[in-house]
Design a binder for these strands. Structure first.
Lengths: 145, 145
DNA sequence: CTACATGCAAAGACTTTGCACATGG
DNA sequence: CCATGTGCAAAGTCTTTGCATGTAG
């Protein structure tokens, strides 16, 4: 996602390219392998742009979600978290959450597509999206115990 | 889950069998194929037990979750929802959410176990639980469009 | 009798909204 | 210029907590 593409996407929605929106996108790009909460994005943006308001960050991530720029994740920790959408639709990944250290791991797996195909066939339900989370204990924590 | 089993489980946790807890359990049993929110449970309990407080329902479902009596579900609709835990560990089911009518459908599928085995092997991550949600359009809504 | 449970209201956490002011195109 | 965006504070929603009172065992 470069500046020109970003501006074009905004324009399609009748939205303006503001410094605030640009700053939020920059933070998301810089931390693309984390899963930042709105509050965390806010804190990072403030480093370069101290005047920004938290409400603006909330409005921005909501806009980005509608634009398909980010995915909203729910790790049941009381707040929404965000990651940049994978640009290629092929790259499917799920999340493993360690119940001991609370770290989140990413996992690639294509078997889910088979499940989706089976569900679509058996239940005549057209699947657009999914949310898959596995809870357990990671390698490191397993060793410590 | 009968009254005696319930009382025994409570006793194991050092908890008492109160009319409030019994009432919440009754509502959950009566509505076992719905996914009630705390507020909805509260409203149903009030039909037979008008003095109950909402905070008690919150405390009760939390206790039931710890006891393994209910599972907490997250449909991203702003509140936790609950269903009785399947007593047999074999009965795995997932949820389909129709983005058009917001109905929730249950789906049985064993393929997920294969995915879990693969993940455990490849990532050395011991899986205890999962949360799987598919979003899309159900049969009925598909026809209407 | 006493540890546990309840009801109520207050407080908390996250998120949205109303409004006056600012600004991108 | 004017529609759109922003910052701030206030309000909203779901949930938890403190405390005096009630009650199961």
């Amino acid at each position: 996602m470069n500046a020109a593409q970003f501006k074009e996407k905004l324009k399609q929605k009748g939205c303006k390219l503001t410094l605030q929106r640009r700053s939020v996108l920059d933070v998301l790009i810089k931390h693309c392998n984390e899963h930042l909460s709105t509050e965390e994005i806010y804190d990072f943006v403030k480093e370069n742009y101290p005047e920004i308001g938290l409400a603006t960050v909330y409005r921005t991530v909501q806009l980005f979600e509608e634009m398909g720029i980010v995915d909203r994740l729910n790790f049941d920790d009381g707040c929404s978290r965000f990651e940049l959408s994978s640009e290629d639709t092929v790259h499917h990944h799920h999340h493993l959450i360690c119940e001991s250290c609370n770290k989140v791991f990413e996992v690639e797996n294509d078997l889910l597509e088979e499940i989706e195909k089976e569900i679509e066939r058996k239940y005549k339900f057209k699947i657009h999206d999914h949310n898959v989370m596995f809870y357990g204990v990671c390698k490191d924590c397993e060793q410590k115990e």
